[in-house]
């Protein structure tokens, strides 16, 4: 009885979270939805006599993999929203049809099979004295080769990620002296104003002012500016508001 209730609650939660993952526009919401699905699956593993896998699911998936996703999301995609333009005509419709057809196919296949009562894992784990010892015995005997190959795979993946993410420096790192020299020769203000020198606000959504009173375009935060335009929330100063609008328009081009 307890298992039935757990299953139905988690089934509803995980399916709706999976739908949220597919349909929410913002990538961070997608990541959170995926976390919910992974967490409910961990509980379902625990219910199905797989406590070790439940722990691994939480540690590896909701712990490591989700953190990695969020890191990359913060690095890359938070302000890159999904475009709604279909590059292939009718792609959404046919993708939906394919998904429904696949679900129906697998669902009917499962429905047509005659499944007896589950054998349960009590017999398999009893001899070794528990789920974890039984899994350990299998991994280090019958599956020991796969286990070793998995370690090789993990090392290869770590190396691959390092090689892919590594950026070769094509020119030497500029020293402080060279940076200062370049700034003086650029014809721009010889020293940048310290924060707050010309500012009348110190909030991060306010554009900074340059010595001549004009607005520094560099100081407009694109993400915050877009939120400002979406929420129609502008500073009272018309000059600052114009700078924010311009930044959003230029980004849209």
């Amino acid at each position: 009885m307890g298992e039935t209730i757990t299953f139905w609650v988690l089934a509803v939660v995980s399916v709706s979270a999976a739908l949220g993952l597919v349909f929410s526009r913002k990538a961070v919401y997608c990541a959170l939805m995926l976390g919910v699905v992974m967490f409910s699956l961990a509980v379902l593993y625990a219910v199905q006599d797989a406590p070790f896998l439940a722990a691994v699911q939480i540690i590896v998936y909701t712990g490591a993999v989700m953190m990695l996703f969020l890191f990359v999301l913060m690095l890359v995609g938070v302000d890159s929203s999904d475009s709604l333009v279909e590059t292939i005509r009718g792609q959404r419709f046919w993708a939906l049809v394919a998904g429904l057809a696949f679900a129906a196919l697998v669902g009917l296949a499962i429905g047509n099979t005659i499944v007896g009562p589950a054998a349960g894992l009590a017999g398999a784990t009893q001899a070794a004295g528990g789920n974890v010892p039984a899994l350990a015995q299998l991994i280090f005997s019958r599956y020991v080769f796969a286990f070793e190959v998995a370690s090789a795979l993990l090392i290869t993946a770590a190396l691959g990620a390092m090689v892919l993410a590594h950026r070769e420096r094509v020119r030497p790192k500029p020293t402080q002296k060279e940076l200062a020299r370049a700034r003086f020769f650029s014809g721009y203000a010889p020293s940048l104003p310290g924060p707050g020198t010309y500012a009348r606000n110190n909030a991060i959504d306010m554009p900074a002012l340059l010595p001549d009173g004009s607005v520094s375009r560099l100081s407009v935060n694109r993400v915050i500016a877009r939120h400002d335009v979406d929420d129609d929330h502008f500073p009272e100063d018309a000059k600052l508001a114009d700078a924010i609008r311009q930044a959003v328009e230029e980004e849209g081009k």
Partner: peptide, 19 residues
């Protein structure tokens, strides 16, 4: 099977590589 199909639809529909 349901979760798998939802994931497959997501792969086909979404454009953001991370999603």
């Amino acid at each position: 099977a349901l979760l798998f199909s939802i994931g497959a639809v997501g792969v086909l529909v979404r454009r953001n590589a991370i999603v």
